[in-house]
């Protein structure tokens, strides 16, 4: 564990806490893409298949349970909670995310570290996480103004993988046979997808204005 990875995990945790706060405090999921939440649920379920077989540390196991539990809880809330689901706007959350699932799985079948069930699903989860934010970013562009909690959620979610990139650089220089090129390339793509959001978020923060993404 290094400071970059710990900062990344904490930033990721904060993004989840901000999202949970928004949904439970406001009893509303306006501005949140159910499709992105479903993709994240698939990402965590596909990545943490080793949850009960490989014990790394208490921290690792607890964080995996938190990530799986929170993503499924948000999906459940947006689909079935009688108050929250009323604020879900199906008409703006129209990204065809099943193509992302199919495409990433196909890619994982061809590009992986080892052709085994666990490794293919792990590579699939890495590729899927890189593009999972797309429905959410498209929804924000469509819905124009972005409420503060939703904006902070996306900001922290985008920042966490940026910290992981620093972690991979650090590990590359400090560990001899460290090679996570699948994670690194996907992590770079994932963080790059947030670039324009980061730019408009910074502009709105500098001008102390409401965050607006150009359509």
């Amino acid at each position: 564990m290094n400071i970059f990875r710990f900062a990344g995990d904490m930033t990721h945790l904060i993004s989840i806490l901000v999202l949970l706060l928004k949904v439970y405090a406001t009893k509303s999921c306006s501005g949140i893409s159910l499709k992105t939440q479903e993709l994240y649920g698939i990402v965590f379920l596909a990545r943490y298949l080793d949850l009960f077989t490989d014990f790394i540390s208490v921290y690792n196991t607890v964080m995996k349970l938190v990530f799986i539990g929170s993503s499924l809880a948000i999906v459940w809330c947006m689909r079935f909670h009688r108050v929250v689901k009323r604020s879900y706007d199906r008409d703006v959350d129209t990204f065809r995310h099943y193509f992302l699932v199919g495409g990433c799985f196909l890619l994982a079948l061809f590009v992986h570290e080892k052709f085994s069930f666990r490794e293919v699903f792990w590579a699939f989860s890495i590729y899927l996480e890189a593009v999972a934010i797309l429905p959410q970013l498209i929804l924000l562009q469509r819905s124009g103004n972005v409420d503060n909690l939703t904006g902070q959620y996306v900001l922290f979610l985008g920042a966490y993988r940026g910290f992981y990139i620093l972690n991979w650089i650090y590990r590359y220089f400090t560990e001899d046979q460290f090679s996570r090129w699948i994670s690194c390339v996907s992590g770079l793509v994932q963080t790059a997808l947030y670039a324009d959001f980061f730019y408009y978020y910074f502009i709105s923060w500098k001008n102390n204005a409401k965050l607006k993404l150009p359509a």
Binding site: R5, D9, H12, D50, D54, I56, N60, M63, K64, F67, E113, K114, E119, W122, Y164, N167, Q177, F178, R180, S183
Partner: peptide
């Protein structure tokens, strides 16, 4: 062959 390194990252 060399076993894949354990995935210790989240």
């Amino acid at each position: 062959g060399q076993t894949a390194p354990v995935k210790d990252e989240l």
